[in-house]
Amino acid sequence: MTKEELRGDLEALGVRAGDLLMVHASLRRLGLGRADAGEGAAERLLDALEAAVGPEGTLLMVLGTDCPTDWVNEQPPETRAQLLAGVPPFDHRNAPAMPDVGWLAEVFRKRPGTLLSDNPSGRFGARGAQAAALLADQPWHDYYGPGSPLEKLCRRGGKILRLGANPDTVTALHYAEYLADLPDKRRTRWDYVLAGPDGQGEHVWIDCLDDSRGIAEWEGEDYFALILKAWLALGRHGEGLVGKAQSELIDAADLVAFGARWMEENLAAPA
């Protein structure tokens, strides 16, 4: 599968020069896993994406961080300072991407010219014409909420490009969780030891809506997957094969607005 073939598939899907795209991809489903396509397949996909959006386009991906002390955040907050005492400072700026977001995200992070946001929990990578503006002034707390790269993606007419990705992996719906008018949204806190100005470890924390377990109790299939399926049923997206994967091109603002309404109707406690 060549760069030119992948670019052709992307353009047939609706990707255009100048587009702002948030990318979620499964290399394995695309037929670009290392077992199928060998080394360099992820780079080939990124080459095709950059060729399709051109020099005026922009690519955005969520990265997170692979933090060795994440296990501490499964413990009660009042115990974390003691658990973190003496651990080496975490270099979140140079840490690998969170494994859950996939190998393409790590290749994207390491690609020369990719800019990174400065948040150990909600770290994004971006490259292209709007990259710096997307990542500027990301909130420390509520890093997926107002002022985040996700809000800017929506306000700037961005699109979500899903290349064989699982239906529960639509990061922009975390922004919808902030927009949804719901009482008592579940919140959480993430604790880290980061290198301070003097190079010593500094215990810091981040408060945000619970982007791990969800903002409300919900039984059954992941509600992000249900929202995506309901929105796709409206037929307002582009779809087709990219490589071997069924793929979708989605208007980010439309999906987020739909998702916020869905949450208001389905996550609210019965009266």
Rank of each mutant, 00 (worst) to 15 (best):
R111D: 03
G57L: 04
A269R: 15
E265G: 11
G128L: 02
A165R: 07
R28P: 02
Q75M: 15
L21V: 13
D66F: 05
G122T: 00
R155Y: 06
K244A: 15
R93A: 02
L60M: 10
E239V: 10
R16Y: 04
R16H: 12
F224W: 09
D36G: 06
P197W: 10
V23W: 00
L59A: 04
N166K: 13
E106D: 15
Y175L: 14
Q75G: 04
A252F: 09
D137W: 01
A105R: 10
E221C: 07
D181L: 06
P68M: 08
F90Y: 15
D184A: 14
L20R: 03
E78T: 08
H92P: 01
F124S: 00
R93N: 00
D91V: 12
Y175P: 08
N94R: 15
A253K: 13
A257N: 14
T2R: 14
N73W: 00
G57C: 07
S212T: 14
A180C: 08
W140I: 01
A271I: 07
R127A: 14
K185S: 04
G201V: 12
S247M: 03
Y144L: 05
L59C: 08
N119E: 05
L182V: 12
T114I: 03
A97L: 06
A41S: 14
Q82F: 10
L115E: 15
R29M: 10
W231Y: 15
G220H: 12
L209D: 04
E248Y: 15
V62A: 03
A126R: 01
F258T: 09
G40W: 09
D181S: 09
L104A: 11
D9M: 07
W140C: 02
C67V: 04
R16L: 12
T79N: 07
E265N: 13
A51F: 03
Y223M: 05
A245R: 01
D142L: 06
D100N: 11
G33I: 01
P55I: 00
P197F: 11
P149E: 01
R29H: 10
A41M: 03
H141Y: 09
P270E: 04
D198Q: 14
P55T: 00
A260K: 06
E5W: 09
A136D: 14
N166P: 09
E221N: 09
D251E: 15
D207I: 08
G8T: 07
A48S: 11
G57P: 00
A12R: 15
L150A: 00
V72Y: 03
D210S: 05
S148W: 00
F124Y: 08
A52R: 01
F258C: 12
Q75I: 07
S26N: 07
A37E: 05
D198K: 09
L182C: 13
N119Y: 01
Q246A: 13
G86A: 05
A95T: 12
P120Y: 03
L232G: 07
